[in-house]
Design a protein around this nucleic acid. Structure first.
Lengths: 138, 138
DNA sequence: GATATAATTTATAGTAATTCTAAATTGTGG
DNA sequence: CCACAATTTAGAATTACTATAAATTATATC
């Protein structure tokens, strides 16, 4: 069985400073697998953390994503959502209620848990440096 | 061999009004497989079409996407790009030069044409109505 | 443990993509 | 060709996100 590292240890392991907002937001994302946006994270945390700033939520989530401690999901409406699970998986976005479902995937078929869903489109996007630009980055 | 319908006929077939801006923009997307944004489409067309408005480009692209005459690609930075090819295919976004490559796909491997690319992340997103909301829409 | 210093946080202003609004124009069925 | 609804248009408004610069804080070193 694998040892679960604490949020603090995972930040340390990544070699970045352990700060109050980073711990707070990272732990929030570990506890809330609801694909929140920065705005949502901020609104959920600001009451119990009055000194927290929205700009900090943007800074922290960006840093966590950079260190691959969280994954970024850009929904079809262009908003950024964050997820503490970084393993590859698909996302299903509901055009009506805007919720985001996780699923294990194959590009051609939807899984059991999405039985009954009306799939209007599927997109698969990879990201990184293209062959032309890769040379400048390795 | 299949008969290629004109842009006009494809709009008619979709049952929507054939207007000058719709023809102009749809034809532009058929001719330019460069995944342009609304802003890009507008800037490329406005000189030869001075009465064209940016708001119209937003309206028209949205309508074309609604009718599935074009596909929408939301890039990792949240911008909307349009593509006249609506068959399922993957997209590779370069974090450095921001260009978008098309590719035939499997979620687990990048194709030959992207040999040399540094893949930093892959996401696969489906869109439509979730099981809970689907009932209200069929 | 105190301290220096660079990283981070914070509030606020700024930016840019997109949406809204309402008046003017245009496409199409009768 | 007329009526009328759909569409276009310009410009204002919104909103997610980024930039800025001063205040604060984490950590390496003494």
């Amino acid at each position: 069985m694998s040892i679960e590292l604490s949020a603090t240890d995972r930040l340390r392991e990544a070699g970045i400073r352990v700060t109050v907002p980073r711990l707070l937001i990272f732990q929030y994302l570990i506890d809330n697998r609801t694909h929140p946006t920065c705005d949502r994270i901020y609104n959920d945390l600001k009451d119990s953390n009055p000194s927290l700033s929205l700009a900090t939520v943007y800074n922290v989530t960006e840093k966590l994503a950079e260190e691959k401690l969280v994954a970024v999901i850009v929904s079809p409406d262009g908003e950024r959502h964050y997820d503490s699970i970084t393993d590859f998986h698909g996302h299903f976005y509901c055009d009506q209620c805007s919720s985001i479902y996780d699923f294990k995937c194959r590009p051609d078929k939807m899984p059991e848990c999405l039985k009954g869903a009306v799939v209007k489109s599927v997109s698969y996007i990879a990201r990184g440096y293209c062959p032309e630009c890769a040379g400048n980055h390795i």
